[in-house]
Simulated assay, not measured.
Amino acid sequence: MNKISLKDLVTPTRVALIASPLLLLLGMGTSHAAGPAFGPDTCAQGYVWREAIPSDHVCVTPAVRQQTAYDNSQAASRRDPNGAYGSNTCIQGYVWREAFQGDAVCVTPDVRQQARSDNSQATARIAPSAPAFGPDTCVQGYVWREAIPSDHVCVTPAVRRQTAYDNSQAASRRDPNGAYGSNTCVSGYVWREAFQGDAVCVTPAVRQQTRRDNALAPSRIAQ
């Protein structure tokens, strides 16, 4: 089965299309040639990565991907910096997209509902015949966590996305003047401990999920 992947779409032409909301709304550039598989996040045929942020590999239709890129391009114009939530306050008629934890891009309510629907369908849209990756191949429905590139603990796609997001927020959650120097977490956060020496600061719930995933890791490897 051919699979639609997006690594081959990051070209000057694609960048130009994303930069032009008009072209996106007209639906141009939606026909994607099939490319090689991209590991555990390869989408089933007919779906592509959403990429609300670069690590957002929820599989959606090409039209939803285009809408996401357009909404990202319009984000600044839809905010009211004097509102109740500061710079993240949406102007009237818009709400936070919430495609991932912390996603405050302002979109219409129907787009937020679409994002929720796509998130709930994410696992079902992963290619069922993803290529094997040797002894670390995950059973169907699971993907590598990749807290670091060599982290091949098998987790749900949602946990993988959370891990990528926590990595992206690591610097903002540290208190360099704390008891553990630059590894000290700000109040409310704890070390993730996905692997020995992992001091990325996360919520206690995420650390508990990490411990559970580590404990279940052997059962999620394809036999």
Rank of each mutant, 00 (worst) to 15 (best):
Q113W: 08
Q113D: 04
Q114L: 03
Q114S: 10
R116W: 11
R116D: 15
S117E: 04
S117C: 08
N119W: 01
N119D: 11
S120T: 10
S120C: 11
S120A: 03
A122E: 02
T123I: 04
T123F: 04
R125E: 07
I126Y: 10
I126Q: 02
P128D: 05
P128Y: 06
P128A: 03
A130K: 06
A130P: 05
A130H: 15
P131L: 02
A132H: 12
F133E: 14
F133T: 12
F133I: 12
F133N: 15
F133A: 08
G134A: 00
G134S: 07
P135Q: 09
P135F: 13
T137I: 04
C138D: 07
V139N: 11
Q140S: 14
G141Y: 05
G141C: 06
V143D: 03
V143Q: 00
W144K: 09
W144A: 11
E146K: 12
E146Q: 14
E146Y: 02
E146L: 03
A147E: 01
A147M: 13
I148Y: 12
I148F: 05
P149D: 04
S150L: 01
S150E: 15
S150W: 09
D151I: 06
D151V: 13
H152N: 08
H152E: 15
V153I: 10
V153N: 10
V153P: 02
V153E: 13
C154D: 04
V155H: 03
P157T: 04
P157I: 01
V159N: 09
R160E: 00
R160V: 03
R161N: 10
R161S: 13
Q162G: 12
Q162R: 12
Q162N: 15
T163M: 02
T163K: 02
A164Y: 04
Y165N: 13
Y165E: 15
D166W: 09
D166L: 08
S168T: 06
S168P: 10
Q169P: 12
Q169W: 08
Q169E: 10
A170C: 09
A171P: 05
A171E: 15
S172I: 11
R173M: 08
R173P: 05
R173Y: 00
R173C: 03
R174P: 09
R174L: 01
D175T: 03
D175S: 14
D175A: 07
D175Y: 02
P176S: 01
P176Q: 05
N177K: 12
N177A: 06
G178E: 04
G178M: 06
A179G: 14
Y180W: 15
S182K: 14
S182T: 15
N183P: 07
N183F: 03
T184I: 11
T184V: 08
C185T: 14
C185N: 03
C185P: 14
C185K: 00
S187G: 11
S187M: 12
G188L: 02
Y189W: 07
Y189H: 13
Y189K: 11
Y189M: 09
V190T: 02
W191H: 09
W191D: 11
